[in-house]
Design a protein around this nucleic acid. Sequence first.
DNA 1: AATTAGCCCTGATTGC
DNA 2: TGCAATCAGGGCTAAT
Length: 291
Amino acid sequence: MPELPEVEVVRRGLAAHTTGATIERVETFGHRVLRRHLPGEEDFAGRVAGRRIEAVCRRGKYLWLDLGGEAVLAHLGMSGQLLLARPGDPVPKHLHARFELIDASGAPLLVHFVDQRTFGGLALAGVDADGIPDPVQHIARDPFDPLFDAAVVARRITSRPSGIKRQLLDQTIVSGIGNIYADEALWRAGLHGERRGDRLTKPAVIRLLGHAHEVMADALGEGGTSFDSLYVNVNGESGYFERSLNAYGREGQPCRRCGSLMRREHFMNRSSFSCPRCQPRPRVADGQFRP
DNA sequence: AATTAGCCCTGATTGC
DNA sequence: TGCAATCAGGGCTAAT
């Protein structure tokens, strides 16, 4: 996280302010931010300077500035932010990169990449004929993609014995879903995350994917989820979807559907929140038994 | 081939 | 009060 809705909030903000802008100069701070740009910071700065931002794009949780033939690729990791600023504004804490732009109206504009935990990063990458950057090739289409095909994804999910939450979080199966929205989609669908994919029907998985799409669309409508004030739009503002969460973080609170007390389980080194009544555990857990 | 452990990192929170 | 342990966890890599 930030997951798809939070990244889309950022994409929209960047698109509104930087489409058609020219990158005059870029400065990076520290070695972490460009660790995936193997040629290094001088190469990055040299190749980005003077380029025009044609569009701002996203797939799953990846975001990129389309420079025409190449892209400045960004991943926010757990705590990354892209913030707009004006020259003279105070320097934010945990600043890892600063893009100096001249926007489409000719005004100077700064884009700051801020990241407390430094799991995020930037890179300059080539793109394919569809404009998808090379490092994003292995990322599956997300539910917001016009070419996302729920039937195809459901066929794949129902062909595997892996647990359904594991598969929802697998960005090579469907992208954009992280721990929060996986739990929310499973709650809406009334499924426990350890239900095996191959023991669910295809229509049930298609419904689950529909719930995932719907809950992320709802969150986007609220400006995203602001769980720990690290998820903000390009103006540093938080969204309001946290109020609407039905599962994530609600351990011990009554299920909003049946009133049972929500439980918390540890799974894949992270917390899973679910309703013990609406989302009963499978009798045989994922992977424990194979006929 | 699929799955899992380990790693990266800082700040808020909890425990002694 | 102070210090240490714990937790948050996406995505990649190495190991199984």
